[in-house]
Structure formats: C-alpha cells, structure tokens
Amino acid sequence: MKIVLKYFLVLAAVALVKPVFAQKSDAGFTGAVADKAHYKALYFVDDTASAKIKMTLRNIDNAISDPRLKGKVEIELVAFAGGYTMFLKSGQYEKALRALQAKGVVLAECSNTIRERNIDKSTLFDFIGYVPSGNGEIIIRGNDGWTIVHP
C-alpha cells in the first residue's frame, strides 16, 4: 500500500508541475529592450584561427547594426596572444577592420604580446592602438561596467 501511495504522489506531482514547465510559443518575443542611453562592449581575440577572427569581426558589425543599439554602443576590439595576426599587414582583415573603425570601433593590440613574441610593429597596421596588456584591458573595462565578449 505504501508503494502505491508513493507512486500516486509522484504522478500527482508530475501532473501538477508539467504545466508550469510547458513550452510557450515564442512567436511574440522580440528580444531585450535597449532602454539605456549608452552601452559599452569589449571584444577580444586571442586566437590565430581565421574562422574565429572572421566571426568576431562579423559579431561586432552585427552589434553595431542591431537597431536596438544603433548609435548607442561603444566597442573596443583588443588582440593579444595569437590574435595579433588579425592586425598583420600581410593578412586578410584590413578592409573589415577599417570598416569597423570607420563605425567607431577602437582597435588595440597588446604590447606584452608584441614584446614577448618579438613582433616588429612595422608589420602591423599603423591605424591600430596599443594597450599595455590585453588581460589588463579586459580587467579594467570589465570593472568599469563594459560587457566582455569573446566569441
């Protein structure tokens, strides 16, 4: 009898809980509302993978183009470790980087990476800036309220 009572209680609990977790239609969902006057995001690249770099650049452009954020978002892109390859003059990203910079994106390279990897700055684009350390930039921006994005 005790076993039957336990099963009955479990079935009753499932019957009561299931409607609470039933999937609702998302047809009317339009996403978050951007009700602030200004948003700040720091994207970072620390990988040499072309697909990763291209995805990051595309993600930044998508954020800038989001109608909810249009004219309200400040973005910085910092590269360190293998991400420095994104800023190589011999690379394939100049057009995309210049387009983002024209839209207000700040482009920065980690000085530690330059020093530790013995990278000649003349091999990098002359339109980028430098920060003392990529990790330091992430820590400072994060503590200043910036959203940190690492696609």
Rank of each mutant, 00 (worst) to 15 (best):
M1V: 10
F8C: 05
F8I: 06
L9Y: 13
V10G: 08
L16M: 11
V17W: 12
V17T: 15
V17D: 08
F21T: 07
A22C: 03
S25W: 10
D26H: 11
G28K: 13
G28A: 15
T30G: 03
V33S: 04
A37Q: 02
A37I: 02
A37L: 04
A41K: 02
L42W: 01
Y43S: 06
V45L: 07
D47H: 14
D47S: 14
T48M: 14
A49M: 10
K52G: 08
T56W: 07
T56F: 05
L57D: 00
L57M: 06
R58F: 10
I60Q: 04
I60K: 05
I60H: 07
N62C: 09
A63M: 15
R68C: 01
R68N: 08
L69P: 03
G71I: 05
V73N: 03
E74N: 02
I75Y: 01
I75F: 00
L77N: 01
A79W: 04
A79T: 11
L88K: 02
L88W: 03
K89G: 14
S90K: 11
S90P: 07
Y93D: 13
Y93V: 13
K95H: 04
A96R: 08
L97V: 04
L100V: 12
K103S: 04
G104A: 00
V105R: 03
V105K: 02
C110A: 14
T113W: 02
I114V: 12
I114D: 02
I114L: 08
N118D: 08
N118Q: 10
I119S: 11
T123G: 14
L124G: 03
D126V: 09
G129A: 09
G129R: 04
V131R: 00
P132C: 04
G134A: 03
E137L: 09
I140F: 11
I140A: 12
G142V: 03
N143T: 11
D144I: 02
G145V: 01
W146E: 07
V149P: 02
